[in-house]
């Protein structure tokens, strides 16, 4: 996000025009908002093709729920809230399909600090191993560049709860990195 208040005011005006059915506002919004949303999907365990499908699905949801946006509120947390639901539904669908396909065995979802299989040379796998809620906060914080307040709005949570998730994610990463460097010695 990070492009400041001026951008947000511009986006609010575009959203208001979009709600009034101005086609040029829709065009401008798609151009302005799609890149950060696509980056958000790409960072969330989806490949480029899946992320583009999710982006299209997300725009359909944005379109159907555009009456729930109010001009007094910031635009991007609203957009990310819709994107988040799109992503969660895609995860659920993927899990349902995986449950049907995989009969034996399970992929470990949660990263444990004492898991010897996780190494610091693959930071991506460490991030992937974090619980989904913590990983989501890190993606929004670091990849999307959102503030804690914006993340709280996008995830229907409080700032305190977001801070706690970030703290836990940092603590787990600190531990795993520390353990790995200890093993390397």
């Amino acid at each position: 996000m990070g492009d400041g208040q001026a951008d947000d005011l511009e986006l609010r005006k575009l959203m208001t025009r979009y709600q009034r059915a101005d086609p040029s506002a829709l065009d401008e919004l798609v151009r302005a908002v799609s890149p950060p949303l696509l980056r958000y999907f790409s960072s969330s365990r989806f490949d480029r093709n899946e992320a583009e499908d999710l982006l299209q699905n997300c725009w359909l949801r944005i379109h159907r729920s555009r009456d729930t946006y109010r001009a007094s509120e910031p635009v991007m947390p609203w957009m990310y809230a819709v994107a988040r639901h799109t992503r969660l539904d895609a995860y659920r669908k993927r899990r349902r399909l995986a449950a049907r396909e995989v009969l034996v065995g399970a992929v470990p979802e949660v990263l444990q600090a004492d898991n010897p299989d996780v190494h610091a040379d693959n930071f991506e796998s460490m991030i992937s191993g974090l619980p989904d809620a913590q990983r989501e906060v890190l993606i929004m914080l670091k990849v999307s560049g959102m503030s804690l307040e914006e993340i709280a709005r996008a995830t229907a949570s409080t700032v305190g709860a977001v801070k706690q998730k970030a703290r836990r994610a940092y603590a787990t990463l600190r531990q795993v990195l520390g353990k790995d460097s200890g093993n390397a010695r």
């Binding site: 109010r70 509120e73 949570s157």
Partner: peptide
């Protein structure tokens, strides 16, 4: 809860 992106003061 019914407004996406709304501010939440309490869980």
């Amino acid at each position: 809860e019914m407004i996406p992106g709304a501010k939440h003061n309490m869980q």
